[in-house]
């Protein structure tokens, strides 16, 4: 059964639609990734900006309401707290996609204005320093994610995957088992 989000006709460039969260806003927008994955576009050190198309702006205290819409936008990668994606695929680098013997762990972390819970998958021995290193991947993939705003408890976001900006992580807790 085909999934609509994976449909791409003819030569249309591949677009990934996701929710991008900063301290104050939610941007529902698409990124043209061509043959790459979003996580690889985010890791691209050639630019600090993420080009968005069809941008729908909401405020974090009222994230259902769309306050502005724009055809194009540019988001400073460093200012992204986390991104909620509709599928797991775009959160895993092409280079790392096949990785056997993964261990799943419950993870809890905080970024500005949000606490995030989910599953974290790791290979081999868990080393927090390695995990938080930003030299290659700047965003940490979390599965089965639930992100809540502690100031507005009714505001929470769920999804199969989120990419959390490692540079924005304030606290990180991992359980011993899944």
């Amino acid at each position: 059964m085909s999934k609509i989000h994976s449909f791409s006709a003819g030569s249309s460039p591949v677009r990934v639609t996701a929710d991008f969260f900063t301290d104050s806003h939610r941007f529902s927008a698409s990124v043209v990734v061509y043959k790459r994955r979003l996580v690889d576009v985010l890791a691209d050190q050639m630019t600090n900006f993420l080009d968005l198309v069809d941008v729908y702006v909401s405020r974090n205290n009222d994230p259902g309401e769309i306050v502005h819409t724009y055809e194009r936008g540019s988001l400073v990668k460093e200012e992204i707290n986390f991104i909620v994606l509709p599928t797991e695929t775009q959160a895993i680098s092409k280079e790392r996609f096949y990785s056997p013997n993964r261990t799943s762990r419950q993870i809890f972390l905080t970024v500005p204005f949000f606490e995030i819970r989910g599953l974290f998958q790791w290979m081999g021995d868990l080393d927090i320093k390695k995990l938080m290193a930003t030299d290659t991947q700047k965003f940490l993939p979390i599965l089965n994610v639930n992100a809540a705003n502690p100031f507005y408890p009714e505001v929470n976001f769920q999804g199969p995957t989120a990419l959390v900006n490692k540079a924005k992580i304030q606290t990180l807790c991992i359980s011993k088992s899944a």
Partner: peptide, 30 residues
């Protein structure tokens, strides 16, 4: 819609929608 959060469903229903489905579902399910 690709906006698939619970708050989006709530907003859609408040606006008068009958139901809300994320674009991640299959066409057959829709």
């Amino acid at each position: 819609s690709a906006r698939f959060q619970p708050v989006d469903k709530q907003t859609a229903l408040q606006a008068g929608a009958t139901d809300y489905l994320p674009k991640s579902i299959s066409p057959d399910a829709l």
